[in-house]
Simulated scan of single mutants.
Amino acid sequence: MRKIILNLAVTLDGYIEGPNGEIDWLETGGGPPEDAAVESHFDKFLATIDTIFYGRISYEKWGEFQPPEGASVAETKLWNGVHSKNKYVFSNSLKKVNGKPEVINSDISTQVQQIKKQPGKDIWLYGGASIITTFMNLGLVDKYLLAVFPVILGEGKPLFSEIRNRVDLTLKSTTPSSGVILLEYDTKR
């Protein structure tokens, strides 16, 4: 069965955005933005998935994002890879999205289990915080790949909030990369 993998950048104090939605801290990794180890990690990750799950807000911000003119080859490659995947948007308010993504707005657990049973590669749970919380509370996340950035924001949008159930994890690997630490955990079942 396919696995659902939460792959996300997070600050050392557990935030995924600053208090005003800022993500400028992603540039504080200690190395160049195209750090070879992080880039290699993400390229390898993209090769293991063929589907992305988004919450509505994350999809509206990033689901069809196009890099600016003059973007690096690495950034263009990254976004081409992301946009080549099947996409699902989880939303209570949207009924349809322009283009290819399918919208899911009811019976999340059953529909996700049906998608997991389909043939294919693993599934990236992209976010945001609300859909991550829903998936965690439903026990739907199989693996966590977290890029922990060397910054403490003090406030913002936490990665884990309103989690109702304990989640025990098994550490699979740690990879330091120019100040960022890549952590891989499997969910104990």
Rank of each mutant, 00 (worst) to 15 (best):
E155N: 09
K77Q: 03
G14S: 00
P101I: 03
S178H: 06
E60M: 08
L26W: 10
L94H: 06
F53P: 01
R166F: 14
K157S: 09
T76L: 11
D186E: 12
T187F: 02
Q113E: 15
S91A: 02
E102S: 13
Q113G: 08
T134K: 14
L26V: 05
E64Y: 10
K100D: 15
L138D: 03
L159Q: 02
G30N: 11
Y144S: 04
G63K: 01
L78H: 06
Q113Y: 11
G30V: 15
R56K: 08
T76W: 00
T170G: 15
G29V: 09
V180M: 06
W79P: 02
I131W: 00
W124I: 05
Y144G: 04
S93W: 07
G55K: 01
T48P: 11
Q66C: 10
E75S: 00
G30D: 07
K100W: 11
E69N: 09
G127E: 00
I16S: 02
I4L: 09
K3E: 15
S173Q: 07
K116Y: 02
P19V: 06
K100S: 12
P67G: 08
I5V: 14
L169M: 14
S178C: 11
H83A: 08
Q118L: 06
V167Q: 12
S177P: 02
S161M: 12
D35E: 12
S161I: 12
K61P: 10
N80P: 04
T134C: 06
V38L: 14
T134V: 05
A36Q: 12
W79A: 10
S106E: 12
W25D: 01
Q113H: 15
S91M: 04
E64L: 11
H41R: 14
K87Y: 02
G179A: 04
S84L: 10
Y185H: 06
K85V: 04
G29I: 13
